[in-house]
Design a protein around this nucleic acid. Structure first.
Lengths: 219, 219
DNA sequence: CGGTCATGTGACCAACTGGTCACATTGTAT
DNA sequence: ATACAATGTGACCAGTTGGTCACATGACCG
């Protein structure tokens, strides 16, 4: 958590520092991110930096928390168009809305994901809890889909979780990599063409999970 | 390319140095990999190291080339059990054989892939050629599958390439992450359980791409 | 004005980094 | 034994890192 001194700063100054940190982590990952460059870019002295944050990890956690909170806020205002969606429709809505969010905060998303993967933090113990939450949520969705008969009963839950997780990550990576090349990411993500691409990708997954072994004659 | 002095070394000593480098890159990625640690671990002096290699990138490229050559050698000895495979069967064979290879050289694979992603080298210009090759190969496979009527004609090639690429990478990541936890990776990868998991993952993809029921129910 | 206290500063620290180089050691051929 | 080249060595270099600290600045209060 940042120290009180940081929270006392003007909104504007905080923004400058946060932006500098985001850029640094997005560009170099966690380990290689340089506090010297962050302070230089923000135009503050190193002493000040350490009056705002305990250490490097502290800024990073702050960015992570910011991103998580922004995401929660973002989703609060969004609601699926229909409440009678089937599980796959709902998942598709989730992914698409998630992509919209990513395109609002592309650098921050990149900074956090890159640093997490960089350090292997994501797979470490500290984030086991967070990962478990994602897994459980997906597992619940899948069980519901199975119950409703929307998914092939021979599909096992753990496998489906992996498939859905992989797919979400792959699409996120794609959006983040391709999106930064566009002049207006948000517009690009919301464009019919991109939406169709996401749809098609999700459909491939959907078809795979809806119909599997029961329809297939193994050799 | 390493200097002649390195190639003059005894097989044994070269192995020691290569192993140390592999461990270092696997553990820390490219940027954070330390030559000091490599020489300490190999028990050679820093001066010697720079008599063997031009610089850090030189060792890394050497490891990359080694891995590529080993892979070529590995695939030379392997052949699909049948020559009358359908495109998906062939792809499945490719993936599985690739996983076998990865489990023979798990640390080296990790070292190379990690460093590549770490530096963003993979997405840089230097590797555009290599990426293009992979893309072209996959695209050719997909076109063949479409021609043979094995794949839904409404699937577009670029999308299918992305799907297949994503799957391969996801499975590789999975194997590398889970595999290192096992006492005998090779055995684990070849075990019926793991093979079944890989099969299932590939089946999900396959069904998604085959799509139309009438086309994938074999007689 | 003086006093107090939060905030800002950059020189400084020890520990590293990749890379060099003058020198020591070894191997070989005469 | 001697000469000469190939190989091995670690102190050393300039540059970087994350983090500290004695001090400067300035805002508010009486």
């Amino acid at each position: 958590m940042p120290k009180q001194t940081f929270l006392n700063l003007s909104e504007e100054k905080r923004q400058i520092i946060v932006n500098a940190a985001v850029e640094e982590f997005a560009e170099h990952g966690f380990k290689a991110a340089s506090i010297n460059r962050i302070v230089a870019k923000s135009g503050i002295s190193k002493g000040s930096f350490y009056q705002y944050f305990k250490d490097k990890m502290d800024v990073f956690r702050y960015l992570m928390d910011m991103l998580a909170n922004e995401k929660i806020e973002f989703f609060k205002d969004k609601h699926p168009s229909s409440s009678n969606m089937d599980t796959f429709e709902y998942f598709r809505w989730l992914v698409k809305t998630g992509m919209e969010f990513n395109s609002v905060y592309p650098r921050m998303t990149r900074a956090v994901t890159r640093a997490l993967l960089d350090e292997g933090l994501y797979y470490g113990e500290k984030f086991a809890e967070y990962r478990q939450l994602t897994t459980d949520t997906l597992a619940a969705m899948i069980k519901q889909a199975l119950k409703r008969g929307e998914m092939d009963p021979s599909v096992d839950v753990e496998l489906a979780v992996m498939v859905m997780n992989t797919w979400t990550n792959a699409i996120t990576t794609y959006i983040l990599n391709e999106g930064v090349k566009q002049k207006d990411i948000m517009k690009w993500v919301c464009s019919a063409k991109t939406q169709e691409k996401i749809d098609k990708l999700l459909y491939v997954m959907e078809y795979g999970l809806r119909k599997t072994e029961s329809q297939f004659v193994k050799s």
